[in-house]
């Protein structure tokens, strides 16, 4: 049923190993993965299985050893990066949500969101207005002026999500987005992410250990020693 939607992430034959010889670690082995518009998928697997490494490859943070990566219709890696400025690529296409919110402690909630907008070239006024709008959308508008240290865990994570969404990226990558939250708030955040994916035509790839939220994902992928196995969902 997703077949007619546009694929936002397509990777094929991606491998990544760290080190050489005795110390060689094969973190990813020949991975193929396609994620389409509107999909919310989970990466599961024991510690050290390669989840973060895969997320880093999708986020253009580390170079795969081999393979092809296509993001939002653009072939960005084919044995080498095809774009010189990977940060610009991230700014344009990808939003990150972290386990810890990673908000800049010296900027207010609103300015944390506005920062990525100004980095993308928006004017100060535009950036402030859109940041306020996003915070309202995520129901933390009333905390816009607060510094991150004064936000609760749930509030901070929602501000971080607002930041990830600021430039309307088509791809949202999240590393344990709900690990620091209780199950009620984790559910709220996941529902929010689903809503975003549906409304913004984006896809979400989240690393998680949190069994209580498995039912919020369209598909679950298991990683074992760098090998990806699809467990549930309509696509192989």
């Amino acid at each position: 049923m997703h077949g007619d939607r546009m694929p936002l992430i397509e990777i094929s034959g991606v491998s990544k190993h760290f080190g050489e010889g005795d110390t060689r670690v094969d973190a990813l082995r020949d991975i193929d993965l396609t994620v389409r518009q509107g999909e919310v998928v989970a990466l599961l697997g024991p510690s050290g299985s390669g989840k973060t490494t895969l997320l880093n490859v999708l986020g253009c943070i580390i170079d795969p050893t081999q393979g092809r990566v296509t993001l939002d219709g653009e072939l960005v890696f084919d044995g080498r990066w095809l774009r010189g400025d990977l940060r610009r690529l991230r700014l344009d296409k990808i939003g990150f949500i972290f386990q810890f919110h990673n908000l800049l402690p010296f900027l207010s909630a609103r300015d944390n969101v506005a920062l990525v907008l100004t980095l993308a070239g928006k004017s100060k006024v535009e950036a402030q207005a859109r940041a306020a709008e996003l915070l309202d959308y995520l129901e933390v508008g009333h905390r816009a002026g607060a510094m991150p240290a004064l936000l609760s865990g749930g509030e901070a994570q929602r501000v971080a999500i607002a930041r990830a969404l600021a430039n309307s990226p088509r791809i949202i990558l999240a590393d344990e987005p709900t690990a620091a939250l209780d199950s009620k708030r984790a559910g709220i955040v996941m529902d929010l992410l689903r809503k975003l994916a549906a409304e913004q035509g984006a896809c979400i790839v989240a690393v998680t250990h949190d069994e209580k939220i498995y039912d919020r994902f369209d598909r679950l992928f298991h990683l074992r020693d760098g090998v990806l196995e699809s467990e549930e969902g309509e696509e192989p």
């Binding site: 940060r87 700014l91 800049l104």
Partner: peptide, 9 residues
């Protein structure tokens, strides 16, 4: 690192 990740030059 966060700044770099979110795309700051």
């Amino acid at each position: 690192a966060t700044l770099k990740l979110i795309g700051a030059p």
